[in-house]
Design a protein around this nucleic acid. Sequence first.
DNA 1: AATAAGATTAAGAATCATTCTCAAAAGGAG
DNA 2: CTCCTTTTGAGAATGATTCTTAATCTTATT
Lengths: 128, 128
Amino acid sequence: MTRQRQTIYEAILTGPAHMTAEEIYESARARMPGVARATVYRNLSLMERDGQVRRIGVAHAPDRYDRTLSPHAHILCPCCGALEDCPMDGLDAWIQTRIGRLVLALQIQAVCGACRTERAKERGEIET
Amino acid sequence: MTRQRQTIYEAILTGPAHMTAEEIYESARARMPGVARATVYRNLSLMERDGQVRRIGVAHAPDRYDRTLSPHAHILCPCCGALEDCPMDGLDAWIQTRIGRLVLALQIQAVCGACRTERAKERGEIET
DNA sequence: AATAAGATTAAGAATCATTCTCAAAAGGAG
DNA sequence: CTCCTTTTGAGAATGATTCTTAATCTTATT
């Protein structure tokens, strides 16, 4: 456990949920100026391999890192990219019996509340 | 409807399901040498906007294009990247009532049969 | 504490899918 | 046919991530 890896992990624990590598890099650099971006990426990969964090792959956007290890789904807003957790509540088990395979991850695309409001405003359906 | 757009659409209709832009480009070039890669990307975007095809964003891999427009989920194998369709069977409706939002897409990560067999072989659990 | 072997780092180059740029070509209306 | 708009082709630009390499830090062994 090197000093930089410790710093990186602290950044993840104390920062907001679902940080990007770049955000983690910024936060780590604030605590330890001189850390290299590559070091952050390398350690994030190692931490994922060791089950310390979970990597959430997002198409057309940087990956996000999740410190919550218990199984849960993710809801991704296609408008703004907001990512939020969603309890499985047996959803994974239900899908597993349907497809006959273990569900490793589940990503749902749905417009978030903020973007839905924003869209309604643009259409003039709501007074700003 | 330009000649290249027609060619690109034909490539999608006659080729395998879930082609990547590069695969579509290759197929289109076989039918019409000289098409530019950028033209393929540009037209794929337009075709998505017009609801002619559906773009499936995949993290750490090129996007795939789906000619099947009826709603269905996708199962992605994290080992080999294989992508297959999965009927919704009310899964979307169930999630919608849970989260209170319209489900636009659903991506399930699960190891495919081929990779599962491969892994068992590597562990010596099956004779090759 | 000295040293050798191995792991890890910092910095920047390389990669790869995709988008952007822009001059040239094509298409369409009259 | 001619003007005007749209689309094309070719390659440069982008952006997240990985790779490369020499230098630095650890650690075990003495």
